[in-house]
């Protein structure tokens, strides 16, 4: 699989962390994407689907983001956690900025030798799962750096 071992996108130097409970004013919301003015990341507003299915294997998750072109990619664990709103749950995310977000597990690009990391948007739990589970189907939200 064309997956890097390193976290492909550590936050840039001097890039502030998102608040544990982001404010809606942190986001610039447009029809299809959301820009986080704190982290300067641009997010897909709604989750993508592949052949009618919303949940994907880890390998398909990498490809569906990369196939969007224009530097879209699967977010790292830290990046995906940046849009978690720990001030609410089911789903733990701002639902105006990110409508129809399922309270379920999402893939991240973060992988270690034996594990892949998933983020549960029911509450914001971030956990490693054994890499043998990479064929399981989970949700995806793609990200790219916001070119300011």
């Amino acid at each position: 699989m064309p997956l890097g071992v390193e976290d492909p996108a550590p936050l840039a130097p001097t890039s502030p962390l998102a608040n544990a409970s982001p404010k809606q004013s942190d986001y610039i919301i447009s029809a299809n994407t959301v820009i986080d003015t704190n982290t300067r990341l641009e997010w897909q507003r709604e989750i993508p689907t592949i052949q009618g299915s919303d949940t994907l294997t880890l390998e398909d998750a990498f490809f569906i983001c990369r196939d969007l072109g224009n530097q879209w990619r699967l977010p790292s664990a830290r990046e995906l956690q940046s849009i978690v709103d720990y001030g609410k749950d089911t789903p733990a995310i701002n639902e105006v900025a990110f409508p129809f977000t399922p309270s379920a597990n999402f893939w991240t690009s973060s992988r270690q030798i034996d594990v892949a990391w998933e983020l549960d948007f029911a509450t914001g739990v971030l956990r490693p799962i054994e890499f043998s589970s990479a064929g399981l189907l989970k949700y995806v939200r793609c990200v790219k750096d916001h070119a300011s």
Partner: peptide, 14 residues
């Protein structure tokens, strides 16, 4: 929680 997660290393050996 986000500050503490920032020093987790998500690559290499667990």
């Amino acid at each position: 929680v986000k500050e503490f997660t920032s020093i987790i290393r998500f690559s290499g050996n667990i």
